[in-house]
Design a protein around this nucleic acid. Structure first.
Lengths: 173, 173
DNA sequence: TCAAAATAATTTGTATGCCTATTAATTCTA
DNA sequence: TAGAATTAATAGGCATACAAATTATTTTGA
């Protein structure tokens, strides 16, 4: 075993945290190239596809984004005829979003988002390897006093990370 | 020692990665409240303060942002009389940015940015604890094929993460 | 019942963050 | 040395992201 200095390890840890951010962003660019859509747009479409039908506010909750932001994303997806907006009949305040046939086709061919890439990578590991990562991140979040924070975002696969996650998550998770 | 299932650990790891993102963003809000400036603005001011005088392109390199983005940030800081722009006499293409007295005063009172919070937390750990985090993150970045990526961003302490870091870093690091 | 509170989506405005020009100045090269 | 390539900063345009205010609808409560 090689003995590493604390200072070295701190620097390396910081670099590696940055690299995780990098992966998210690089993956985002790749997605953008392959689909012609931005990361959040692909992400939204994937969530909609998984749900079949979803309300704006629930979609926002799932994406850990503000409803405002999601409205804009849906606007642009609608303009490209990838999604439909339908006013709910039960509650006429609600807007239900669904995929158009074009949207369905696109989601079938779109590549993974960043969080999925990470998840896939993790799943390929054996237990001892996973354990190392698990304990390392566990300790890291502990020193950040972050263990009590609700997990959110990432998977954003995108440039712009949302500021907070304290919004109307309608228990959709 | 408790035996944990792989599935559980993968889920926990993902959550903890999200929490690291959270810390960055939460910290950003705190900074915003305390200074009245946004995270990137405070970050820029701190870099300028550290350098005394810095060119736009070098500032961009330091912040792992596009020069265009930095121009916007400097625009807003200039509007608040926190920084000055001076056209360099040696190379008249260059714009040197400095802090005004108000800017200097602000930087003295502004809180830590997120990456510093992480760094501080890490520094407080002993070697065995650090080693755990180090190996965990090392393994994580390996599975992401990210170890060869140049580390960048974060420390941004901010909402919007830059897309890439491949820009003119004038060896200022 | 009927006003008040809550909820869902949208609109408006600000701040990133990037890309693609564009302008001005400097350096390289034929 | 004149023209070409490079470099530095900026302008303009688009897409997030948020907060605050607005509109429409539903639910609560007096």
């Amino acid at each position: 075993m090689h003995k590493l200095g604390n200072k070295f390890m701190v620097a390396e840890i910081m670099d590696n945290i940055r690299r995780v951010f990098q992966v998210v962003n690089e993956q985002s660019k790749k997605v953008e190239k392959e689909t012609g859509l931005t990361g959040p747009q692909v992400w939204a479409i994937k969530v909609i596809a998984a749900e079949g039908t979803i309300r704006i506010s629930d979609l926002a909750g799932r994406m850990y984004l503000h409803p405002t932001t999601v409205v804009g994303i849906i606007d642009r997806l609608e303009k490209r005829s990838l999604v439909n907006r339908v006013r709910s009949r039960e509650d006429r305040r609600v807007v239900d979003v669904t995929l158009t046939p074009e949207g369905l086709q696109l989601v079938a061919n779109s590549p993974e988002v960043a969080s999925n890439k990470i998840t896939q990578g993790l799943k390929s590991l054996n237990t001892p390897e996973l354990t190392i990562i698990y304990h390392g991140l566990d300790k890291l979040t502990r020193i950040l006093d972050a263990t009590d924070l609700p997990p959110a975002l990432i998977g954003s696969t995108e440039i712009n990370l949302p500021k907070t996650n304290k919004r109307d998550v309608k228990g959709t998770d």
